[in-house]
Amino acid sequence: MKRAGFSTPWLPVLLLVPQLAIIAIFFYWPAIVALHSSFYLQDPFGFGSTFVGLENYTHLLGSAEYRRVAVFTLTFTLLVTFFSLALALLLAVKADKVLRGAKTYRTLLMWVYAVAPPVAGFIAVILFNQSWGPLTELFGLFGHTYMVGVNFNDTAFAMILASVWKQVPVNFIFFLSALQSIPRSVREAALIDNRSASGRFWDVTFPLLAPTGFFLLIINITYALFETFGIVDTVVKGEPGNNPMTLVYKVYVDGFRGNDLGGSSAQSVILMVLVLALTIFQFRLLERRIHYT
């Protein structure tokens, strides 16, 4: 058998150069600069700077506020990931059964995917407006004075709601296509073995959705950690105050607003390590345990 290949070793290198250049310029170079400046405290204009070793890191690890933001980020990520996946799965299972007008339902459910995060955040700000927000009034009916921007938990709830709402459609699309790719023969066989619909779902359908589910798990964790920036920024209106914020937002607050380049770089490096760990976890552990058909 003839192996397809390049006659000269230079051609593949040449073809790779554009991609490698992009990675080097937009990923490796900034990462190296961030790592370098995390060891310094420098004047934002670039005049003075002092090498401080690991001080930026020890400062963060000793900071009660940084720990508080980290704990919130963890809670936020877990809740957003769980509810985005669970709701999307529920909707996908229901949509899968619909025969009439299926396309309309599906389109309506995917609609929100096109909304940009800051817009999602802005919708939350309107819904939860302190004086006339419809959801504020709804909570008022149940005797809770909802105060977004004042009460920590109220603000956190608005952020989580907007983030989940924004992410459900993406998960929905993936789950729906996964459901539709389950072979008819498998479903029919299950129907003979098990009369209970929920039993069939948990024993047969759910395991078959696992590959999609784990892929979405990673996607959703990354989304909650990083892409919710726009939602957080809009909900807190650029003034963090006593409001909840995520680790990524804190990088922005300290670096771009506060001009603390060293401290902010150290925070970025910590996040880079986190992403690295997440990626290793994905490839080493999850991919091995999942059986793709």
């Binding site: 506020e65 004042v150 003034e239 105050g241 006593n242 607050v253 607003r257 506060g258 001009n259």
Partner: peptide
């Protein structure tokens, strides 16, 4: 120096005072 961040700290702590945290 870093007064923007100092204000952020004040805003945070004042908010916590006024929400009873």
């Amino acid at each position: 120096g870093f007064y923007v961040q100092i204000r952020d700290v004040m805003n945070r702590e004042y908010g916590r005072i006024l929400t009873g945290e």
